[in-house]
């Protein structure tokens, strides 16, 4: 079944967070491994950007023998060219956020919107049956959800998806880059205009201007220092247990 499906994975140029050394973006490598599970060697591996990026070598070593590169100059929107390139792909896999630049995690949504396809995020696993993708989705607090949606669609893969990544130097040497022609596209999405600033200080939380006088402010500080909830001294253990249980039930923390 899945053999007849065309599956593509989108990879971005990664960067080690400390050394800044170019590498495969970890999350994208996981998405690629998930794609190989789904489509084997027929998986298309697509990158938008610089075809000479040293980060691409890493993907070769991780199993991408052929990488299709859509040459998009730095700073230009990749959504249009990628959408044009991926019109025929039934399943488009992405990572959940890029390691270089903005890393907004918006790309899968913008791409899905441009292609008018459903998008599911935080994917841990996927099964395709009768034109429908069934997805296991990551949720916080140890929970997992099952969601299904019709093919074609976009899936952004959660970095915790289980997969095997094996690195082989021989593949790094034999990997090929295939330059794809770019169709000029109107800009699809308006992105904020980012300018770099030094990150020497920790971000400052937004705080409301305090209109209180000095004395009230001081009181505020010491009062929050002494913050505390109800304290229950009285009663037997059974009474106390009932109070605790009532608290849990009132806040819907237990189900009975």
């Amino acid at each position: 079944m899945s053999e007849r499906l065309s599956v593509a994975v989108l990879i971005s140029a990664g960067q080690h967070p400390v050394s800044r050394a170019p590498r495969a973006c970890r999350g994208d490598a996981v998405a690629m491994a998930l794609g190989r599970k789904l489509a084997g060697d027929s998986l298309r591996v697509v990158h938008a950007g610089d075809p000479k990026s040293p980060a691409l070598n890493d993907y070769h070593a991780l199993g991408a023998s052929r990488i299709e590169v859509v040459a998009v100059p730095d700073g230009q929107d990749a959504i249009g060219p990628l959408a044009a390139k991926l019109l025929k792909a039934d399943v488009i896999l992405t990572g959940s956020r890029a390691e270089q630049g903005e890393g907004s995690g918006l790309l899968p949504y913008l791409l899905a919107h441009a292609l008018r396809r459903p998008v599911i995020a935080d994917v841990l696993g996927v099964w395709i049956e009768k034109g429908e993708a069934q997805v296991r989705q990551f949720q916080p607090k140890g929970r997992r959800r099952r969601v299904a949606a019709p093919v074609p669609l976009v899936l952004s893969v959660h970095p915790l998806a289980s997969c095997e990544l094996t690195y082989a130097y021989a593949r790094l040497k034999s990997g090929r880059i295939e330059l794809a022609s770019v169709v000029a596209q109107p800009r699809q999405a308006i992105r904020p205009h980012w300018t770099l600033e030094p990150a020497s200080q920790r971000p400052v939380p937004l705080k409301a201007r305090d209109t209180k006088d000095g004395h009230a402010r001081m009181l505020g500080y010491i009062q929050s220092q002494a913050k505390g909830g109800a304290v229950v001294f009285e009663g037997s253990s059974v009474d106390k247990a009932q109070i605790l249980l009532t608290y849990l039930r009132d806040h819907r923390l237990v189900e009975l």
Binding site: E102, L196, E197, P205
Partner: peptide, 25 residues
């Protein structure tokens, strides 16, 4: 803008390149 770590009336800031730098808009 996503993952906004700092904001005020004039700007939002995000971590750039996995936190190596910061960018504002």
């Amino acid at each position: 803008a996503t993952h906004v770590v700092e904001l005020d009336a004039d700007h939002v800031s995000i971590a750039w390149s996995s936190g190596g730098e910061r960018a504002r808009a």
